[in-house]
Nucleic acid binder design. Structure first.
Lengths: 202, 202
DNA sequence: GTCTATATTGTGATAGAC
DNA sequence: GTCTATCACAATATAGAC
């Protein structure tokens, strides 16, 4: 972050990403962003008029990178269970490498649900592709009856929750052993699809 | 809240619970608590010396009410799968009736992990009872091999995540229809145990 | 115990020199 | 474009009257 060879605007955005995503809107100080970017507070306001606008730039950037893009996998020509495996592997890895993202998004939406949910919707989440293939599996009797949205929520819960709740589970169940916790998270990426498949197969 | 027949200290604590649990430490203003309690700011400091101390009172109270107490179910004399059903039913209902609790706990632990995880640990979470009965089921070949902590996390994920992420899923998947979302949450309490049982049964 | 008034501090934002 | 200095306001906390 804040590399010497970036222009000032990008240095600011990079530093703002770091701080906002770790600490959230309310927990972030403009001073900390300025320090991390190697400039002073006044320049933040020169490039982005307010904290709110800088935050929205970071939020929209985060959303654009971390919204699940499932159309490609959904419409690909592989068996349904392999689609599950591929999605969990792909999306789980993305979040594993960016572990602060889930709590960032959840916290900010809790703080300001209407505006920020709209920010997500306006970037075009496309879950319909996923829902229709799940429904088709159900209709054709290849998996147990399940409401596609519930199924989606189950899958996201199993992927996201252990990352979002890491600060808690790490201390309460794993004696603050970060290495072991991350090992568990990686192992989950293989176990979750099988867990799900066993749960729904006929 | 702030009923006329409560003494001042309890009026304050009740009002503080309402506000802190919805908005978190950073999002809460002492003025709002005072208003909701029907008193003025100075009295808050008379009873609780600082915002921090008032917050800790609320946090510890929340923890004492919402930590899962699994020993009783774990050691009861019913089949393992019925224990799962009973726990999901019981704990799920508790959180369903207190839907702000999960994000409150997760957010605050993210903000201040060491102090607040200790606050939880010092109230004595007892997950060992649960872990040992899961391990026994595995050892005796009645369920598929699974690490007890992973299993616990899966179960908690399926119960908690749809509540914690409600502000997001409600708007993105349910067109802001609160009634339908709550209906889905209640229905899940019956579906989750079967989902889990299918996933692990041999 | 409860109030009003005020002190104190922190922080987002702006003015103005260079 | 970038800086220093400063403003303006919000929020916690305290003093002191009753």
């Amino acid at each position: 972050m804040a590399d010497k060879d970036l222009n000032t605007e990008n240095k600011i955005l990079g530093a703002a990403e770091d701080v906002f995503i770790k600490k959230g809107m309310d927990g972030t100080r403009m001073q900390e962003i300025a320090n991390k970017a190697g400039i002073n507070k006044a320049l933040l306001h020169y490039y982005y008029r307010s904290k709110e606008k800088l935050f929205m730039a970071v939020f929209n950037l985060a959303i654009s990178k971390f919204i699940p893009r499932i159309e490609k996998i959904a419409y690909s020509d592989i068996p349904f269970f392999d689609k599950i495996r591929m999605f969990v592997e792909h999306y789980g890895n993305l979040l594993y490498k960016n572990q602060f993202i889930p709590m960032f998004v959840l916290s900010e939406i809790r703080r300001n649900p209407d505006q920020l949910a709209n920010a997500i919707l306006s970037q075009g989440v496309n879950t319909d592709a996923f829902f229709s293939i799940v429904q088709k599996e159900v209709d054709e009797g290849r998996i147990k009856p399940i409401e596609p949205r519930s199924f989606f929520i189950n899958m996201m819960a199993l992927i996201i929750f252990p990352i979002a709740a890491k600060p808690m589970f790490l201390r309460i169940l794993y004696k603050n052993d970060k290495r072991e916790y991350d090992q568990m998270l990686r192992k989950r990426l293989e176990e979750i699809p099988e867990f799900i498949i066993n749960a729904i197969k006929v």
